[in-house]
């Protein structure tokens, strides 16, 4: 009886794990030697309209630019929010001889640091961070999220009617923190009266709590909201329901989520950086460098939503801010 019960439990467990694995990893065609093979491990889904999606769409862009599926093979493991699972996946990809293995999340740093020395012929990349651990087969990448944050802040500061703006963040680390810092300073540079309130939910994935946070801001009088992480869809939903609240996005183009209220999004474009890493790897340079996306190198872009009217004055101020950041006349304190 006990034995049977144990077996049943085991079979159940295996079925479950298999479902997860199927949901998690999708593999495309088997490789031949000509093809450049890229594997990426991400903490959320490729369709999260935020962090993971920004990387995935850049990889697809790179694949198309380099000649499609015959030239570049892409595989991914998504929703790897459990770090030991991600470690296993990264090691598997490295063992299978992928040319470039990307750990797309700052929580994966220590894994890459452990893994890279075992596979000296494989290029590794991870972010967001600038630390390559002194290893010559590790690239690090990050985004100067404060720059787009500043620009979004300038527009928001000029558009707010109520003078109250809400920021809904996940956890106070990495680009979530720097984006908000830049946003705050951007608002203050054009509107010294404005009240910018911040909330942090303590989770990258808790949509329900993010929704509640956004509703709290709206009840507090906010007419503009912003925020980052995959859970901001909750904030956007709350803004939509309120009807008269505008949204500023970051990481990926968020207009599709709410065409009527998204004013502008800071978009991370990793494609140019990735192109360079691929070219380096093909010529035998597997790492040792770190990349920062900025407005200047066009890794960061501000995407306006044509469906929302932005006052000309605000557009002009935004253009001026971009120019100022690029030429160094505007400095953002981090």
């Amino acid at each position: 009886m006990k034995r049977r019960a144990f077996l049943v439990s085991l079979v159940m467990l295996m079925v479950m794990v298999t479902t997860l694995a199927v949901a998690g990893a999708t593999s495309e065609a088997e490789a031949d030697s000509e093809v450049f093979r890229i594997a990426v491990v991400m903490p959320s889904a490729t369709t999260d309209t935020a962090f993971s999606q920004s990387m995935w769409s850049a990889l697809v862009t790179v694949q198309e630019a380099m000649g499609g599926e015959e030239a570049v093979e892409l595989v991914y493991s998504e929703n790897m929010f459990i770090v030991p699972d991600a470690a296993a996946a990264l090691r598997d990809y490295a063992s299978q001889g992928y040319d470039l293995v990307i750990g797309h999340g700052s929580q994966y740093g220590t894994i890459i640091e452990d893994l890279a020395p075992d596979f000296p012929e494989t290029a590794f990349a991870w972010g967001t961070d600038v630390n390559t651990f002194g290893l010559d087969n590790v690239y690090a990448y990050t985004a100067a999220a404060e720059q787009g944050g500043y620009v979004n802040g300038v527009i928001a500061g000029l558009m707010t009617q109520s003078g109250t703006i809400g920021v809904t963040g996940p956890v106070e680390v990495g680009d979530a923190r720097t984006y908000v810092t830049g946003f705050y300073q951007g608002v203050r540079s054009v509107n010294s009266e404005a009240n910018v309130a911040e909330t942090w939910t303590g989770s990258f994935s808790d949509v329900a709590l993010m929704t509640a946070a956004a509703q709290t801001h709206i009840l507090n009088g906010a007419d503009i909201l912003t925020g980052s992480s995959q859970s901001v869809v909750g904030s956007i939903g709350a803004a939509l329901e309120a009807g008269d609240v505008l949204w500023f996005g970051t990481q990926a183009e968020q207009t599709t989520l709410a065409p009527d209220i998204v004013v502008a999004s800071q978009v991370y474009d990793w494609s140019m950086m990735l192109m360079e890493i691929v070219e380096n790897a093909q010529s035998g340079v597997y790492g040792g460098e770190s990349y920062i996306l900025t407005l200047e190198n066009e890794g960061l872009k501000i995407a306006y939503n044509e469906g929302v009217d932005v006052p000309a004055e605000a557009v002009e101020a935004a253009e001026a801010a971009i120019a100022g950041i690029i030429d160094g006349s505007i400095e953002i304190d981090l």
Partner: peptide, 17 residues
Amino acid sequence: ISISTVNLFQDNLTAGQ
């Protein structure tokens, strides 16, 4: 959660609730 509070679906929507 999905059709009354947040009105959308996303991976791991419940976040451990």
